[in-house]
Nucleic acid binder design. Structure first.
Lengths: 169, 169
DNA sequence: CCAGAAAGTGAGTCATCACTCAGGTTCAGC
DNA sequence: GCTGAACCTGAGTGATGACTCACTTTCTGG
């Protein structure tokens, strides 16, 4: 049986890291995370041997949450939701962006869901049959990247997404 | 009259920095730039008091080049060109992205050109009249961001841009 | 030529962080 | 309770990288 306090700390660290990275991006220091979690630095490193490991853990969590969400959405709803999530937690983006960190499997799960939603949308006649998944993922990456770096009003975000949706239809 | 060697060094530093940042992103060290330019670190700092100043100088140069290019292109040609440039020199992107660095005026020049091209495209019936400049800029930001972070094949890049163009039409 | 001003040099400073570890604390099973 | 294994602590370490400055070198105008 794992110790209860260790479990509590692990959870607290994950929550703190999510907040810290959301605020300051991946440049948030491990110590900031530790303080936020009410814990010493050493404890953070006991649970996650590396800062990157911590980032990966958070990203996987985020991707899993999104993958679940996909189960109960249409394609367009889902894309909108992903962009929202990207703005809120500035880490997802990195996840979609580069192969620097190893989150291959979680990302594949998301892609599978998108593929399913894409097929649905095609059958409903909402998306051209010629559109491929990698194109949708590329657009998704693009939008999330930009949404978090620059400061878009929700209005602009909606109008931009509308253009993309029109391009898919 | 400014000294000739100083001019030469300034040019060499700018060229070296462009290369270095293109290869390693903004994380390239000042010393790498110095070595590439065949110069000591101190000299780099004599010309550009800050690493950020150096980045700004490069970005402005890049934006000016693009602004010039806009004079002789259609909207779609231009957007494609910007994305290409973004992939080549990984610094433009940061320019479009955030207000972290001060390049306001150069960016405004680019936006003006895009606006002009947009009007042209509308008159030619290639773009819906309802499309606004900020939307085009947002899409531009998005695409450049993504293009440089992830590794897109030129094929995927073309297909993705095609979808965006279709959305604008 | 030659002064002296402008420019260049590069070892050194200082701050920042990811990460460690010797020693103290707390939990869980008996 | 008690014991020992698991866990926590936080000052310290080492690496990195932006920036400085006392000193040397190189231009250029007269």
């Amino acid at each position: 049986m794992a110790r209860a306090d260790a479990q509590r700390n692990r959870t607290a660290i994950l929550a703190a890291a999510t907040e810290a990275f959301a605020e300051h991006g991946p440049r948030a220091t491990t110590e900031q995370v530790a303080i936020r979690a009410g814990v010493a630095v050493g404890t953070v490193f006991r649970h996650f041997p590396t800062k990157d490991a911590l980032l990966v853990a958070i990203m996987k969590e985020s991707l899993r949450r999104l993958t679940d969400l996909a189960a109960e959405s249409t394609l367009f709803e889902f894309l909108t939701a992903v962009v929202d999530e990207a703005i809120r937690t500035r880490t997802v983006v990195a996840a979609l962006a580069g192969p620097e960190l190893d989150i291959g499997d979680a990302l594949r799960g998301l892609t599978d869901e998108v593929e399913r939603l894409l097929e649905q949308a095609k059958e409903a006649g909402e998306v051209r049959p010629t559109v491929r998944v990698d194109e949708v993922m590329a657009l998704l990456t693009a939008t999330t990247q930009a949404a978090q770096h620059s400061t878009w009003s929700t209005d602009l975000q909606e109008r931009t997404l509308a253009i993309i949706f029109r391009g898919l239809a």
